[in-house]
Design a protein around this nucleic acid. Structure first.
Length: 550
DNA sequence: CGCGTTTGACCTGCGC
DNA sequence: GCGCAGGTCAAACGCG
């Protein structure tokens, strides 16, 4: 499928080639042996015929996808209307409106490109422009805008507005705080928070009412994961239904940074750590924090923009019949009600992920290897209020879990050496704040791994991740989805490696299979390994990371 | 002494 | 309107 889609994009050019070949053949016929040239002509015609057939097949496939997509959209809308008709959140309204606009105006190809995340704000803007351009004199502007929007949509499709340039990197890039967010949102936020302090006002300005939350579920025995950023704990609370306390952290890189994170153990499986990020950094991020920042950014962008394609973000309890539906080559699981059919480790802790006022997405890195192999490509486990992005990493239970999200083909193993410079985007799940999780302490005691063991388990993880990467890249569905998205995004002219770079920026976890898929998957510079945290540490800053190994 | 964590009090939003 | 639960504040505390 990937091949066929790849051929589809430059299909026109391919046809042209064939035409010119055949015309050449015609000219040559004058000079040379006719039967021979006729054979060439015939073969060329046959090839053209094949290409036409292939195009036809692709059109059929596209139609099928569109039908699936629209039926799912309808289903989602119905669910939303049923559940939340009296009290619809602003987010839901925007979402539905966005869907409505997309259904009305978008071409099938355009829709495919939506599947991996497009700026919701651009959608809203577009919607606004359409609203305001009803007069005839504005019609031209409107048309232009639609054209521009299409272009913008394609451009933004996988970009998620996360630029790795330091100037832009000062923002984590969560979409709701992007400079592109709608003016309406800004106004609303301003009104809501107008009575607050100036600092709060600034924060409010950056954080519209419906914040996207990105949860990372990971199986690890460490109290928190090292994401490269610096956090200060400001509270701890026992949440209902979970004996493990939830810890509240605030980004302490700058005092005014609005980013917060919550860290909590999963009540059903204490080896699973759930970290929920919220907000956008208003400062330059440490390089080591880029991986998490860009990944959460992309994920958040997906629920706030691309969410319309999967029906993410509506309110309601987390509940679900899991109905797999192939959309755009990705397996979606629409959730409705019941826990029995949930995929392994599917949002066991609803207290974090099911808040109706916070559209959330969960990057699930907890599934076992067997289930992972059966479930690739990555699942978008969607319920009415949250999304579970299952980039399963085949982590065996109770194994120490240092995971490294690299931006290249090679997953980084970590050296337990002091003073190692953090050079590349990576994540690890270090041992920190162990004492904060008192219910978990006993569990931790049993699972204290020495460095050598950790090394061993990391090696296992590396192998597992490599296998996972292979599984992803080998899956034709995923390849086709990816190819379709890229094709729709870049059109026929752009070079794919540039787009891949953007993709990798947006979704570092995708980098490996992207590079595998692309011809330009050349060797990348392998950033020096990250130091892992030791049992005691006070923050997750890179500097502290060095201390943690002492 | 400074900085980060702990923890009880307080605030806020939501559901009944 | 009330109660509950999540989230935040800030004084107290501990550690280096």
């Amino acid at each position: 499928m990937e091949e066929t889609l790849k051929r589809k994009a430059p299909g026109g050019a391919f046809k042209e080639e064939k035409r010119s070949e055949s015309s050449h053949a015609d000219e040559d016929c004058k000079d040379e042996d006719k039967p021979l040239k006729e054979n060439e002509l015939d073969s060329a015609k046959a090839e053209m015929h094949e290409v036409r057939e292939e195009n036809q097949r692709l059109r059929t496939y596209l139609d099928k996808m569109m039908k699936d997509y629209q039926s799912l959209q309808t289903q989602f809308n119905n669910i939303v209307h049923e559940k939340d008709s009296p009290k619809k959140s602003r987010y839901d309204r925007a979402l539905n409106h966005q869907e409505h606009v997309e259904q009305k105006h978008d071409t099938p190809e355009f829709d495919v490109s939506l599947s991996l995340g497009r700026s919701s704000s651009s959608e809203l803007k577009r919607d606004n422009v359409r609203k305001h351009s009803s007069s005839p004199q504005k019609a031209e502007t409107s048309t232009k805008t639609v054209e521009q929007d299409k272009e913008e949509g394609l451009r933004l499709g996988l970009d998620c507005r996360f630029d790795m340039q330091p100037s832009v990197l000062s923002k984590e890039g969560l979409p709701e705080t992007s400079p592109e967010h709608s003016l309406d949102d800004e106004k609303e936020v301003h009104t809501e928070k107008s009575e607050k302090a100036p600092e709060d006002d600034e924060v409010a300005h950056q954080n519209p009412a419906k914040k996207a939350r990105v949860s990372v579920r990971v199986r690890c025995d460490t109290p928190t994961m090292i994401d490269g950023c610096q956090w200060r704990k400001y509270g701890q609370k026992i949440a209902k239904g979970n004996p493990c306390p939830r810890a509240y952290y605030r980004c302490s890189v700058t005092p005014s940074c609005p980013v917060r994170k919550q860290v909590q153990r999963c009540s059903q499986d204490m080896s699973i750590l759930i970290t929920t990020y919220e907000g956008t950094h208003n400062h330059t991020l440490p390089i080591a924090a880029h991986a998490m920042a860009s990944t959460t950014s992309a994920a958040a962008s997906m629920i706030l923009s691309g969410s319309s394609t999967s029906g993410i973000g509506s309110s309601g309890a987390s509940t679900a019949i899991t109905t797999p539906a192939e959309l755009h080559g990705l397996n979606y699981y629409l959730s409705n009600n019941s826990t029995s059919s949930r995929p392994p480790f599917y949002l066991p802790n609803s207290s974090i992920s099911s808040s109706s006022s916070y559209p959330s997405i969960t990057l699930d890195l907890t599934s076992s290897s067997s289930s992972m192999m059966n479930n690739f490509p990555p699942r978008y486990n969607v319920n009415s209020s949250s999304t579970n992005l299952n980039f399963s990493s085949s982590l065996e239970s109770n194994s120490t879990l240092p995971i490294f999200w690299s931006n290249g083909n090679n997953y980084q193993l970590q050296n337990y050496t002091k003073n190692t410079q953090i050079m590349g985007p990576s994540l690890n799940f270090g041992r920190q704040h162990q004492e904060n999780f008192y219910p978990y302490n006993s569990f931790m005691q049993k699972n204290k791994n020495e460095v050598a063991q950790a090394h061993q388990s990391m090696q296992m993880d590396k192998n597992s991740i490599e296998s996972a990467t292979k599984a992803i890249t080998a899956d034709p569905n995923f390849q086709s989805a990816l190819a379709a998205a890229i094709t729709s995004m870049i059109g026929s002219n752009n070079n794919i490696s540039g787009q891949n770079a953007k993709l990798e920026q947006s979704f570092p976890v995708l980098s490996s299979f992207l590079s595998t898929n692309s011809q330009a998957s050349n060797m990348r510079p392998v950033p020096p390994p990250l130091p892992i945290s030791s049992s005691k540490s006070k923050s997750t800053s890179p500097e502290d990371n060095r201390d943690q190994v002492r």
